[in-house]
């Protein structure tokens, strides 16, 4: 897989479309893979289930919603951090919630950052641009995988 891939974990199709549009407007050209619940996210990251045959490697960045069907975002985060192979992958929580307990739990479980999805699209574009500038261009990512 392309080592610059972004994994977007998002169950709301409207938010998926808006996020992709915001990335495009924000000038982020990385390939984006979208999965729609927590189980699919783990299947992708651990290259199992529907993703058993995918080429090896971890995404550069995971954008993780918290409210997800089947398995919630915080559970996904816990499972990822417990994994010896992709435990250090960069995970940014991207969610509507600004609940103090969600923020605290996310960091306790090892999120690299926490970003609230803005309602205004222009703000959303600004946020994605900031994510691109820092997490994709400035930050030196960890070596993930064997």
């Amino acid at each position: 897989m392309n080592p610059n891939t972004i994994l977007l974990v998002e169950d709301n199709p409207d938010d998926e479309l808006l996020t992709l549009r915001a990335f495009e407007r924000g000038g982020i050209a990385n390939p984006i893979v979208v999965v729609r619940d927590g189980i699919e996210a783990l299947d992708y990251l651990f290259a199992r289930g529907a993703f058993a045959g995918r080429t090896a490697g971890a995404p550069l960045l995971v954008l993780l919603d918290l409210k997800l069907p089947r398995l919630g975002g915080l559970e996904v985060l816990r499972a990822v951090r417990a994994d010896p192979v992709c435990g250090t992958v960069l995970v940014l929580v991207l969610t509507s919630s600004r609940d103090d307990s969600d923020i605290a739990r996310a960091y306790e479980l090892g999120a690299n950052g926490y970003v609230q999805k803005p309602v205004e699209f222009d703000d959303f574009v600004r946020v994605t641009r900031a994510i691109g500038t820092y997490w994709l261009m400035t930050n030196v990512p960890p070596q993930v995988g064997p």
Binding site: N12, D14, D15, L18, R21, S96, S97, D99, K117, P118, V119, E120, F121, D122, F124
Partner: peptide, 17 residues
């Protein structure tokens, strides 16, 4: 209040689109 944000984001985002 949180759940109301998601549809609002659609309304604001797609009308701007």
């Amino acid at each position: 209040s949180h759940d109301l944000r998601a549809p609002l984001r659609s309304i604001a985002g797609f009308s701007q689109a």
